[in-house]
Simulated scan of single mutants.
Amino acid sequence: MDTLDIVIEAPIWEADPLTALATAAVRAALHHVHIDPDDCEVTLLACDDTRIAELNAEFRGKPTPTNVLSWPAQSLAPPAEGQTPPAPEAGFDGMIELGDIALSYDTCAREAVESGKPFADHLTHLIVHGVLHLLGYDHETDGDAALMEGLEVEILGNLGLDDPYNADDKITGATVAPFPKTGPNGRH
């Protein structure tokens, strides 16, 4: 599948389980919003707390670790609070470059333990969350958060996973950053 390019920067990530899980999460999120995953490109950086803190400092001015960061390739802000963002546009080659997502193993694993959830379930949620950020969804206002969280619950339910918001499991660290001129993996 060419939709997802995974760059494993921290050795603690295991390539095969991450690849299968991330592929399923990205494809499920895109299918749910009626976008053909085979027409899209997403890069996922699998890193640790040290690296994600560097990225968070560089792009958001917050020198602390977080669970997930997203760099949308296109600005897809919705027309009004709580509304669906516009669809991303394909490039000259017909492919839709969505952007980059970075995940910190350390923070993801710690949050999974703290919330009593399987690591794979929490990681799937964060990947779906990151993809939705790439598509212009956000959680800065109540209306936008309700829309985004509702989509997450539906997508995860379609994957057979529980509602992550059912037990005060808010993704407090998940953020969207301005798309860098050079992505965290140097591909853009």
Rank of each mutant, 00 (worst) to 15 (best):
V26S: 00
L4W: 00
G157A: 15
G136F: 02
L45K: 02
D100K: 04
F92I: 10
G99T: 04
G99M: 02
Q83K: 14
E152I: 15
P88A: 01
D2H: 15
I52P: 08
T66A: 09
H188M: 08
E54T: 06
Q83D: 15
G136Q: 04
G61L: 08
D121S: 10
V26F: 07
A174N: 07
P180H: 06
G116A: 11
V33D: 02
D49L: 08
V176F: 01
Y105K: 04
T107I: 14
L98Y: 02
A25N: 00
P63E: 13
K170S: 13
N67A: 13
G116Y: 13
W71Q: 06
I12N: 00
H133Y: 08
L69G: 03
K181L: 15
L159N: 01
A109E: 08
G130L: 03
R51Y: 08
A28F: 05
D138T: 09
L18R: 02
M95Y: 11
A57S: 15
G173S: 12
P72K: 01
D142N: 12
E140A: 10
G94H: 06
A22F: 07
A25C: 03
N185Y: 07
T172Q: 12
F92M: 08
A77Y: 07
R27K: 11
T50I: 15
I12K: 11
I101M: 09
E41Q: 14
P78F: 08
V176A: 09
T19H: 11
D142L: 12
C108D: 05
N166G: 14
P85F: 03
E81T: 14
L161T: 03
P88V: 00
E89M: 12
Y137P: 00
V153G: 00
D163M: 03
T172R: 09
D169M: 08
D36W: 07
V131P: 02
T19N: 10
G157R: 09
P85G: 07
H31L: 10
C40K: 04
I12S: 09
V7D: 04
A146D: 10
H133M: 00
I96F: 11
I52H: 13
A73N: 05
P85L: 04
D144V: 05
G183R: 10
A167S: 13
